[in-house]
Amino acid sequence: MSHTLTNISLKIWRQDGPDGQGRFETHQIPEISDEASFLEMLDILNERLIEENKEAIVFDHDCREGICGTCSLMIDGQAHGPQKGTATCQLHMRTFSSGDEIVIEPWRATAFPIIKDLMVDRSPFDRIVEAGGFITAPTGGAPDANLIPIPKPVSDSAMDNAACIGCGACVAACPNGAASLFTSAKLTHLNVLPQGQSERFKRAESMVETMEEYFGSCTNHGECSSACPKEISIDAIAVMNTDYRKSKLKNRKSLSRK
């Protein structure tokens, strides 16, 4: 059933702080069970570093179930590593072989400055949501939940896009450092639902413009979708483009009607 991998060598990015000069550090893992998750391997390495009186490697992680979106890591040049539809925390060592050299780097984007080692600051994602990634529905006074029937395909499509975990792999994988998949997934989730219609175009305009303050532009490579642990489709980006264009006209129209 389980077997042991030997002689894994890890090339890991270390950086003292946001302004620090980073470098790769090489560590050997003589033995590791293939049942171990990738992050457990880093845990074990950290234990050893502490034993050797060295500072542990800083990396973001939390739920380890692939849903909180805290973990990151560029593994061998792929965001979240080689397994499709899988966040780093769900990646297991059985994906690798004895003797492999594994290179681990932080996400790199100007909007995601490195905090330390492999940890980056992804707060621009929060700024995008704050700009319009919501349906205004103050607490209390909501109508009965079954008042508006929503066709199942519409609801399913909203759910497909709402599955985004905000990990930032799309930005990390994009050759342009664009956040179009993240932004469009949230936009599509809310813009296809009947509840989201009143704010549809205002939302599109403000989310896209906030996104552009921080991130690059989409040139339709499709890397984002391939790196996405939730496999969100780039169809969402097309929806965003349409809604943004319309917003430029509609928002103008309703503003000038004041």
Binding site: A137, A145, S155, A162, L190
Partner: peptide
Amino acid sequence: VNIIDQMVAQGVPFAREYGGLL
């Protein structure tokens, strides 16, 4: 009961029947 109303109003995509109801 209020929670469900509230969350649906916010756009939480709860599972639905083909008729469109929850």
